[in-house]
């Protein structure tokens, strides 16, 4: 289905922001936002206008206890350190393994994918909970190559789905299904590449066959990665 034009596109953007679209349509709009800057701009305009609608409410001073709660929160909140530092003990062991695996697999990938005309511009090594590299993604201008590290068990009637978190705390956006063995090459439009390569986090979850029915991860997250430029 192609992106609608004119008023239909405007309504789609508005209803996406209002939250009145059914889940399937919402998921489609999330994909289109990545591909069509004009739709992304419409969504941004509606977000702006609806925020103004929120601001129409008559201001009301919150009770003093709300301020005290916030002050308590700030007192207890130490200056935040990066997640990578918080999880230092984990990464101390996982990172060298992941780096070694990624370097090895990049070599394998370059050997195996002879159609690559330009070097990859981004790489992500998706590491599982036990510190094992499971999938290696290399992202170029128009293609993404996926190498599965070994073979990953896939329960019946299930799929592995790749997601990205554009910024910390933002909702996950679906990218597509990943294989559980071998090599896969997918077309990667430039707009999607930019979002993926600079995403805060990539993640793989276990979903019903064909992918999450809701547009959000519904199963456990099995591996994560932070994309790196190369």
């Amino acid at each position: 289905m192609n992106l609608p034009a004119g008023e239909t596109r405007e309504l789609l953007a508005a209803e996406y922001v209002l939250g009145t679209l059914p889940p399937t349509a919402r998921r489609r709009v999330e994909r289109w936002i990545l591909l069509h800057p004009e739709l992304a701009e419409s969504v941004r305009r509606w977000e702006h206008d609806f925020a103004r609608l929120a601001a129409l409410a008559t201001p009301e001073p919150p009770p003093a206890r709300c301020r005290r709660r916030l002050e308590n929160f700030l007192k207890n909140e130490r200056p935040r350190r990066r997640l990578t530092l918080i999880a230092a003990s984990f990464w101390r062991y996982a990172a060298p393994l992941a780096v070694a695996a990624s370097l090895f697999l990049v070599v394998v990938l370059v050997e195996r994918v002879r159609t690559v005309e330009r070097p990859p511009a981004g790489i992500a090594v998706l590491v599982g909970r036990h510190g094992h590299a499971r999938w290696v993604l290399t992202m170029g201008h128009d293609r993404m190559h996926v190498v599965v590290v070994g073979r990953i068990a896939l329960p019946p009637h299930k799929s592995y789905e790749l997601w990205f978190e554009p910024r910390a705390g933002a909702p996950m956006i679906p990218v597509g299904l990943l294989p559980n063995r071998g090599l896969m090459t997918a077309r990667l439009p430039a707009a999607v590449y930019v979002r993926l390569a600079h995403a805060h986090l990539l993640a793989v979850s276990l979903e019903p066959a064909g992918g999450s029915p809701t547009g959000r991860p519904t199963g456990p997250v099995l591996a994560t990665a932070t994309p790196q430029a190369v």
Partner: peptide, 8 residues
């Protein structure tokens, strides 16, 4: 912003 947010 708290008064405006709380009103909302």
């Amino acid at each position: 912003l708290a008064p405006q947010l709380f009103g909302f």
